[in-house]
Amino acid sequence: MIARLVPHPILSATLTLVWLGLVNKVTLGNLLLGSVLGLAIPMLTAAYWPNRPKLRKPLVAVRYIGMVLWDIVIANVEVAMIILFKKRDEVHSQWIVVPLDLTSPEAITWLAGTITLTPGTVSATLSADASSILVHCLHTDDPGGVRDTIKARYEAPLKEIFP
C-alpha cells in the first residue's frame, strides 16, 4: 500500500527539496506545497519508472559525489591546460573500451555521467548488451591506464552503492 502511494521515496524527498530551493524560502506553506508535488509527481509518473532502484550505502554515495566534484575541478584545469598549451597535432585523442561489471541501468547512467564530467573523457555509447562502454579520451598515451582508473576509481564505489 505504502509502496503504491510513495513509489519512489528518494525522488519524493528530492522533489520537495528542489521545490523549496526554487522558491528560495522555507515556510510551512512552501513545505506543504513541495510535499504535495513530491508525492503527486512520482505517483503520476510511476508507470514510466517500473524499477525501484535501492541505494545500498548512502554514505558511500555522498563520498562518491564529493570525490567526483573534486575530480571535476581537476578535470577543468587539465583540459584547460591541453587547450591552451598543446599544439593541435600533439593532442592524441583515442577511443577507449571499458568493460562493465555494473548491471543496473541506474548505476551505468551514473558511471556514464561521471565519465563525461571528469578528466578529458566523454562517454559515447554502450554496447548493445550494455556490457561495455565506449569512451572518447581527449588526450592520452596510455589507454589501458585510463581504463583501469575509471574501473578502480568510479566503477568500484558504484558497485557498492547499487546492489
Binding site: I96, V97, P99, T125, S127, A128, D129, A130, S131, L134
Partner: peptide, 21 residues
C-alpha cells in the same frame, strides 16, 4: 572506425540488443 566491444554484441548504435535480455 570504432574499437571492438570486446564482448559478444556490437555497439548499441549499430546493433540491436540480444533477444534474451
Amino acid at each position: 572506425d570504432l574499437p571492438e566491444t570486446g564482448r559478444g554484441p556490437g555497439w548499441a548504435i549499430y546493433d540491436d540488443a540480444p533477444e534474451s535480455e
